[in-house]
Computed example of a mutant assay.
Amino acid sequence: MRTRGARLSAGVACLGLVLVACGKEPVSIPTLRLSAADQAVCQRLVNALPDHVADQSRRKTQPAAALGGAWGDPAIVAQCGVPVPAGFTRTAGCTTADGVGWYLPDDQFRDNSSDIVISTVGYRPILQVTVPARYRPNGLAAAMVELAPMVKQYTKLVKPCH
């Protein structure tokens, strides 16, 4: 039989866990100007984002209507509706994960100690994901695979990126 002190200790421990989880600041995601159609697509994609990416739990974002999601600390950040990345060219290579082509900048890909920004350049609107170096290499692969279903379901393939 549990004593009152044991129940109180367990309750304090649970409250402590809740306060630690709530203590993280929301992750800021820039607001982008999108067409009404892209805004609607991105909102559906964001509403479908998973609770976990690369074994990291979802975090709050700001502003509340941000078209993206964040997981973990440091945060893996996804944002919908971004422009084509500056370094992307027609001859740039992509990595395919679960049927979705992701553009990975060569300089970032080769340096496992740097954060990497990946983008679904063959889809519209484009989903961009920033993966902190801490999660590489497994977190990078997990993010691509775990977010691919939302990309395929909610965005439009305009030109495959291989």
Score class of each variant (00 low, 15 high):
Gln128Gly: 03
Ala86Leu: 12
Ser114Gly: 12
Pro125Ala: 13
Ala78Gln: 06
Gly72Ser: 10
Gly139Thr: 03
Ile118Trp: 03
Pro85Val: 07
Arg124Phe: 00
Thr89Trp: 01
Asp73Ser: 13
Asn112Ile: 10
Leu140Asn: 03
Thr95Arg: 15
Ala97His: 09
Pro105Val: 09
Asp98Glu: 12
Phe109Ala: 14
Pro85Trp: 09
Gln79Ile: 05
Arg90Tyr: 03
Pro132Trp: 04
Pro132Ala: 09
Pro74Phe: 05
Tyr135Met: 02
Gly122Tyr: 05
Leu104Phe: 12
Leu140Gln: 08
Ala97Asp: 10
Pro125Thr: 13
Trp71Glu: 01
Ser113Pro: 00
Val121Glu: 11
Asn138Glu: 06
Pro137Lys: 03
Asp73Ala: 11
Trp71Thr: 05
Gly87Asp: 14
Leu104Val: 14
Thr91Ile: 08
Val84Tyr: 04
Asn138Trp: 01
Ser119Arg: 08
Pro125Lys: 13
Ile76Met: 01
Pro137Tyr: 06
Gly99Pro: 08
Leu127Asn: 06
Ala92Thr: 15
Leu127Phe: 00
Gly122Met: 07
Gln79Tyr: 02
Ala97Lys: 15
Tyr135Leu: 02
Asn112Ser: 11
Phe109Lys: 15
Leu104Met: 13
Val121Ser: 06
Ile118Arg: 05
Ala142Ile: 03
Asp106Pro: 15
Gly87Ala: 09
Thr95Gln: 14
Ala86Phe: 08
Val82Thr: 15
Ile116Cys: 04
Ser113Phe: 04
Phe109His: 14
Asp115Asn: 15
Phe109Tyr: 15
Asp73Gly: 04
Gln128Asn: 07
Ser113Trp: 05
Gly99Asn: 11
Arg134Glu: 15
Pro132Asp: 05
Ile126Val: 13
Ala97Gln: 14
Ala75Tyr: 03
Cys94Pro: 09
Ala141Phe: 00
